[in-house]
Amino acid sequence: MLHNIPAILPPEALFYMAQMGHGDMLVIGDSNFPAQSMGQRVIRCEGSNASQILDAVVTLFPLDTFVEDRAVTMQVVGAPDTIPPAVAEFQAIIDAKGDNPAPIVSVERFAFYDRARAAFAIIQTGEPRPYGNIILTKGIIV
């Protein structure tokens, strides 16, 4: 048993997060995200939503300070300036709990998928809200 580890994160997620290095990316995907076809390391957390997982992850995971796009979401198709409710909630979590908060950057859908394919791991959640996906870039622990 470990102290101060969010119980919502399964051991597999902790294992992969600990293996990640500076600049590696972690995807937190919603229930519709094509996780299995995107990456080799998929952690299933269907009993949790993306905000719950993000909240737990940012307590353990330093965000990269060397890149502007340390947190990236998918733009709404046909309305790229729209901020979905899930993304607004993600920003509030990062602002409140992230050690290196920054504005979330949004990218076009297929650009998001390209980044997701390059990610170290994907956490598939049961998030029902559309556009409830985020990619985090891991920073360094000082």
Rank of each mutant, 00 (worst) to 15 (best):
I83F: 13
R109V: 04
G47W: 10
P130S: 13
S37D: 02
F120N: 10
P85N: 13
G23W: 11
P34L: 08
Q124H: 05
Y16V: 15
D69R: 03
N32F: 03
D24N: 15
F110S: 06
G23N: 12
I83C: 06
F33Q: 00
T73R: 06
A50S: 09
N100Q: 11
G78Y: 11
L60V: 09
M20G: 14
F90K: 13
D69E: 15
M25F: 12
S37N: 03
R44N: 08
A119G: 03
F120W: 15
I140T: 07
V105A: 13
A121C: 09
A7Q: 11
F15A: 13
G39T: 02
D114T: 05
V87H: 06
A7Y: 01
F110C: 10
L26F: 12
N133H: 00
P128I: 02
F33I: 01
A86C: 15
V142N: 06
P103L: 11
P34F: 00
A118N: 13
S51L: 15
Q75V: 03
L2Q: 11
P103M: 09
Q19K: 13
A116I: 00
P128R: 07
I94L: 15
A56S: 13
V142C: 14
Y16K: 13
A13C: 02
F15S: 11
Q52G: 12
A119T: 05
T73P: 14
F90C: 12
Q36K: 00
I83A: 14
I94C: 12
A96W: 12
Q124L: 00
I141Q: 05
T82H: 04
Q52R: 09
N49C: 07
A111D: 15
G98M: 12
E108G: 14
G39S: 10
P128H: 15
Y16S: 12
V42L: 00
P62V: 10
M25C: 12
L14P: 05
Q91R: 11
R44G: 01
L136F: 02
A96Q: 07
A71Q: 09
N49W: 04
I53D: 02
E12T: 08
S51K: 03
L14K: 04
D81H: 05
K97A: 03
T59K: 14
R115K: 11
E46S: 06
F90H: 13
M25S: 14
V105G: 08
A50W: 01
I53S: 06
E89V: 03
G21N: 12
F120V: 02
M1D: 09
P34V: 06
I83P: 15
Y16E: 13
K138E: 10
L136Y: 00
S31C: 04
A56F: 04
E127Q: 05
D30G: 11
G139Y: 03
P103G: 14
P10Y: 06
S31N: 09
L60D: 15
A88E: 15
Y113I: 07
T137F: 02
R41N: 08
S106P: 10
F66W: 10
G98F: 05
H3G: 14
I5A: 09
Q36T: 01
R41Y: 01
H22N: 08
N100V: 11
E89Q: 14
T125H: 05
F110W: 06
P103W: 13
R117M: 07
E127L: 01
L26I: 10
C45L: 07
A102E: 04
T59P: 03
T125D: 12
